[in-house]
């Protein structure tokens, strides 16, 4: 069980100063346990801010978020996050980055090794175990980021544009892999993206946000059957949803 709820959340940066900036207003959302939700919206509408608050990196100025009824305060390994920026530790090799989570939680050498093998394979970085991050491309580093969070096995997976920097093929492969991992582990996934096709392909529900301040414009329930296959991307149901959502975004 890992259900996240966002209740009457409003967030203002630098509240009470002349630079006060309300980035999120009246957000009410529910992410059922084991569901896959995407959040789309124009740049600057507060998607990353919302995700970071769910991760517990800072508190909203008003309202609250709960995980299984308990108010979210501070970070916890149950809520893992893939950041929009590159967050790979440059002073650790690829393998050491991947096993960072298990290591700080006291996993044995053998367990760390197992996690490294499993997740390096999963994100397609075999052969790069002992490389330094500076020797990888931007997209490869992103995959280290993703593998590192997977290896830490959180119940809730917060992903902030994780596949933004990848080429189409790698992206499609990682999307399918993500769905597979998700199906097996029943994690609650909250996924921010600018790519409508990606959102539709992956999600149970899609939250469309409007900007300044960020509000919820629409929630789309995606009724496409699972498991999803790449051929579905071209079906009329799929494209109808895409057209509908596209018209909803601020252009």
């Amino acid at each position: 069980m890992s259900e996240i709820k966002v209740n009457n959340l409003t967030h203002t940066f630098s509240k009470g100063t002349p630079e006060a900036l309300t980035v999120l207003e009246d957000i009410n959302l529910s992410f059922p346990s084991g569901s896959f939700t995407s959040i789309v919206g124009t740049s600057g509408c507060g998607k990353s801010t919302l995700l970071k608050m769910m991760a517990g990196l800072f508190d909203p100025t008003d309202g609250e978020m709960t995980l299984d009824g308990a108010v979210i305060r501070g970070t916890d390994r149950k809520r893992g996050m893939v950041f929009q920026q590159d967050a790979v530790f440059p002073w650790m090799t690829v393998a050491k980055n991947i096993s960072y989570g298990p290591r700080i939680h006291g996993a044995s050498k053998a367990e760390q090794q197992a996690a490294e093998t499993k997740w390096i394979e999963a994100v397609g970085l075999k052969g790069f175990e002992d490389r330094w991050p500076r020797e990888l491309s931007g997209g490869m580093r992103k995959r280290v980021d993703i593998g590192r969070v997977y290896a830490n096995d959180p119940d809730v997976l917060l992903m902030d544009e994780p596949f933004g920097a990848l080429d189409a093929q790698t992206k499609e492969r990682l999307q399918s892999d993500l769905l597979e991992t998700w199906r097996q582990t029943q994690k609650t996934v909250i996924f921010v993206t600018h790519d409508l096709e990606e959102a539709i392909f992956l999600s149970d529900q899609i939250v469309v946000m409007s900007a300044r301040p960020g509000r919820i414009r629409h929630i789309e329930e995606v009724a496409l059957p699972r498991p999803r296959s790449n051929e579905m991307r071209l079906t009329s149901e799929f494209l109808d949803i895409k057209r509908k959502l596209w018209n909803m975004l601020d252009h």
Binding site: R77, R148, N152
Partner: peptide, 20 residues
């Protein structure tokens, strides 16, 4: 972002200090 990444993986304040 490194501090945030470590914290969201469940590192304690001291672990973030030592490992990041």
């Amino acid at each position: 972002v490194y501090v945030d990444a470590a914290s969201t993986m469940g590192a304690s304040r001291f672990q973030v200090f030592r490992t990041v």
